[in-house]
Design a binder for these strands. Structure first.
Lengths: 130, 130
DNA sequence: AAGATGTATTGACAACCATCAATATAGTTC
DNA sequence: GAACTATATTGATGGTTGTCAATACATCTT
């Protein structure tokens, strides 16, 4: 039903019938957006999110050989996931002899949290926590 | 080089040589993790992150015909992205006549922010903001 | 009822991704 | 140097994803 015009195409009271007067908006795919997307993509996998959770919870570097046995995945696969996290700057590595220790790069996680958090309160995508 | 043993495999001073005494850790791929991953995956795309940013910044529902012209993508592609956001519960729709209005579901965004934020300060993945 | 318009769906295709087995690399111990 | 160990890389494979063109669906207007 809905018989009145069609209830205002936009909340603006200038009742147009044609729809879609464009709105100024931040540029698509700016490099800042792409940076955020890289971090979000790194987090958007169960294994990697779990690794990040492990690292955040322990607050100590973990060596690969300690991470691997927590998953039903081969060592090369874990190594691949660690590489993705590293390339997103979410983790940092330190080599001690034969072992490689991974630790969380908290500043990057903070940046994403504040960026997403800024969407909630700030009028635009400005930082709120950092 | 590095001639001393190999500089403690783990920070623990019980100097083992074999490496890898496993550590108790949260279960992989629990449904909570998978839920988070779904939301993060929805956000991990430039177009979708931009749409979410638009909706968050305006704090008003946007109709599809207002969203489409901001991207160099066809209407079906935008519709697909909106579907992904909807299935992650990140957005909510309201139909007014011929138009469909999308608005941000802030509670879901809040949940992700607090979940990721909890990793930074909480000892485990507990909420910090909610 | 007929045409017009906004949105969603379908099918196809290329690009990407997670995984594994096998192998390479780097460091350590004998 | 030779054997060994921890980690990284490579190549292959099946599954997922982003995009488009075409079409379907729903609703409004005449």
């Amino acid at each position: 039903m809905i018989t009145e015009k069609h209830q205002a195409p936009r909340p603006d009271p200038q009742a147009e019938t044609t729809c879609c007067s464009p709105i100024d908006m931040p540029d698509v795919a700016s490099s800042a957006v792409l940076d955020e997307v890289r971090v979000l993509s790194a987090l958007a996998d169960p294994t990697r999110l779990q690794i990040v959770t492990m690292l955040a919870g322990l607050d100590e570097p973990l060596c690969v050989c300690e991470i691997v046995p927590h998953f039903n995945l081969g060592q090369p696969t874990i190594s691949h996931h660690l590489r993705v996290l590293r390339e997103a700057s979410l983790v940092v590595t330190e080599k001690r002899g034969l072992w490689v220790y991974y630790s969380l790069n908290r500043s990057v996680l903070e940046r994403i949290v504040s960026s997403l958090g800024g969407l909630l309160s700030g009028s635009s995508a400005t930082a709120i926590l950092a």
